[in-house]
């Protein structure tokens, strides 16, 4: 009795409990395993599991003919694609990112209509995904922003927009709201952070430019040890997404 003699549906179940790197490693075992762990359907499921895309039968991809899902997967890893949800995904501009390899953080914004800091607040969004860390929880109450002058913004309030669990079956689960969300492999969580903009900033990019970084404390579930993730605002990225139209109107692109 060998592992590869298990019924194929049991094998796929095992494969889908694995991360992409382990799966790629199995392909190296021998030619039979290369076939088993390299099946196109399996990698299509991995794509769903890792990037939470609802449907990967997307027109753009289908038009390119036969799709090698594993190639798509490695491309998406290399561009560090944001996992998809109503509040995250490809179309959201990335204004900041972190340097860690086990947890990915994307910083984005829900822009106001006219891109003016009319209410004095910015709605910053943090998308945090566990890509290869041990299960961990993030402490939203401890999320802190720092301005370039070293001071924190005058006010900030954090709200949880949901924890998205990745599933082994390839289904997309609805987001969960829990007090101590546990992020296992490929799960991600979204926080909306309403922060007070510097009082003299009039338009969003101007306000954003004054921020330097955000720190997010986390705790490893098993060892209970504390970790601190920092995500920096990338200045050159910020202005790219705003455009001033003739007449002084600002738009978010």
């Amino acid at each position: 009795m060998k592992l590869e003699d298990l019924p194929s549906h049991v094998l796929s179940r095992i494969f889908l409990c694995l991360d992409a790197e382990s799966l790629a490693k199995l392909q190296l075992l021998d030619s039979r395993w290369n076939e088993l762990a390299g099946s196109n359907e399996l990698w299509r499921m991995m794509l769903k599991k890792r990037f939470h895309v609802q449907s990967v039968n997307n027109k753009h991809l289908m038009n390119t003919g036969a799709v090698e899902w594993k190639n798509v997967f490695s491309n998406w890893v290399s561009i560090r694609r944001m996992p998809s949800s109503p509040f995250s995904g490809q179309r959201f501009p990335v204004l900041g990112r972190n340097a860690d390899t086990d947890v990915y953080i994307w910083l984005t914004i829900r822009p106001s209509e006219d891109c003016h800091v009319s209410s004095g607040h910015l709605n910053l969004r943090l998308i945090i995904q566990n890509v290869m860390a041990a299960p961990l929880t993030f402490e939203s109450s401890g999320i802190s922003f720092t301005l370039k002058d070293g001071q924190p913004p005058a006010e900030r309030s954090i709200s949880d927009l949901g924890l998205y669990k990745s599933s082994c079956t390839g289904d997309v689960n609805p987001p969960e709201l829990t007090k101590y969300p546990l992020l296992e492999e490929y799960d991600f969580i979204i926080y909306n952070c309403q922060v007070r903009a510097p009082p003299d900033a009039v338009i969003e990019p101007d306000a954003l430019e004054r921020f330097s970084e955000v720190q997010i404390p986390a705790r490893e579930h098993k060892t209970k040890s504390h970790r601190l993730y920092r995500c920096e605002f990338v200045e050159s990225e910020i202005w790219k997404h705003y455009e001033c139209l003739p007449g002084g109107f600002w738009v978010f692109t």
Binding site: E4, L28, D30, S31
Partner: peptide
């Protein structure tokens, strides 16, 4: 672990 002999 799984007694596999590579054939590559």
């Amino acid at each position: 672990l799984f007694c596999i002999e590579g054939d590559f």
